[in-house]
């Protein structure tokens, strides 16, 4: 039974760590209305920069170095979009591609780094909590502490004037332009913050799994978007904080589905299909939910029945 629970603990750890990247997309995708496809690359950038700095002996500086690197990457994406007028999807893809080479270079022309014996925030908390009842949950403690900081930061940020401008830029660009706010600055800062968070998420992932490799971020953007969409099912018309918590729940639920699939001995190669199905369900839920609740009549109506209502 303990083993049974431990898989859900692993899923929670992974889910909570990636939920920081989900929150980054919460800023860029939901609030700024930009689909930032450089997410995979900046996640790996955070992992590799974090790993290199931690190996050099600075476990805490590593987290900030990762955030800084992510912010620079966000700055580049934003620069391409706003100053060079490259389509936002394309700007993300281009930066993501370039980051591959940069990440290899950061890790010293290597594709994988071993952090097994490296001091990180996790190992520090492990020894700190070793004689308490939280002994086995040190990873969760670290992640929840950091998440609490991140959620507080986002909630406060989005409530400031700048936050309002950021939300407005995503909502109605014309209105923002006409009210003498410079949307370029807003986009640049917004993308820098979101990429900084993505990189933080990546560095925590590397520390938690004790290695960083060039593929650590592959597919994160899909996972994060799926988690975000699951998250929006909860707390739809609520405040920012609850919405952010919804995104976190989404990330954890997403990993739980993987755990259940593995429990049923499903080959791991099918997990991508599972995640695609989850995204479809999350996207269509709002259209399907009501008719299904109304029973057979409702379902008939959903699939092309005449609209009498």
């Amino acid at each position: 039974m303990a083993g049974f629970l431990s898989t859900f603990q692993t899923a929670s750890e992974l889910g909570l760590i990636t939920s920081i990247a989900v929150l980054a997309l919460f800023i860029s995708y939901i609030n700024l209305n930009i689909c930032d496809l450089s997410t995979d690359g900046s996640f790996t950038l955070g992992a590799s920069v974090g790993a290199v700095v931690a190996i050099a002996g600075y476990p805490y500086l590593a987290l900030f170095a990762a955030i800084g690197a992510g912010m620079i990457s966000g700055l580049v994406v934003a620069f391409l979009q706003t100053k060079l007028h490259i389509n936002s999807l394309l700007a993300g893809i281009v930066v993501n591609t370039g980051l591959y080479s940069i990440n290899i270079a950061v890790m010293g022309n290597s594709s994988i780094l071993n952090l097994n014996k490296t001091r990180t925030i996790f190992t520090d908390f492990k020894s700190l909590l070793s004689s308490t009842f939280l002994n086995n949950y040190y990873k969760l403690v670290v992640i929840i502490l950091i998440l609490a900081l991140v959620v507080t930061f986002i909630t406060l940020l989005l409530k400031t004037k700048f936050g309002l401008a950021l939300r407005a830029t995503g909502d109605n660009l014309e209105m923002v332009k006409s009210s003498s706010i410079n949307p370029t600055i807003i986009t640049i800062i917004g993308l820098m913050i979101s990429n900084g968070l993505t990189a933080l998420s990546g560095s925590l992932m590397a520390f938690s799994v004790k290695s960083s490799d060039i593929n650590i971020g592959s597919g994160i953007v899909t996972v994060a978007l799926a988690s975000l969409l699951i998250g929006t099912l909860f707390f739809k018309k609520r405040g920012i904080c609850l919405k952010a918590i919804g995104a976190i729940i989404g990330a954890v639920l997403f990993r739980f589905v993987y755990t259940l699939a593995l429990k049923m001995d499903m080959p791991a190669s099918y997990l991508k299909l599972v995640s695609a199905v989850i995204v479809v369900i999350a996207l269509s839920a709002r259209y399907v939910k009501e008719p299904v609740l109304r029973g057979v009549d409702g379902i008939k109506k959903l699939f092309g029945g005449r609209k009498n209502a």
């Binding site: 431990s6 898989t7 603990q9 692993t10 899923a11 992974l14 990636t18 992932m205 799994v209 490799d213 593929n215 650590i216 592959s218 597919g219 996972v223 990993r255 993987y258 755990t259 593995l262 429990k263 791991a268 997990l271």
Partner: peptide, 11 residues
């Protein structure tokens, strides 16, 4: 997939 790798091992 690094995260899936971790979930497989945990499983």
């Amino acid at each position: 997939d690094r995260a899936v790798l971790d979930q497989i091992i945990s499983d």
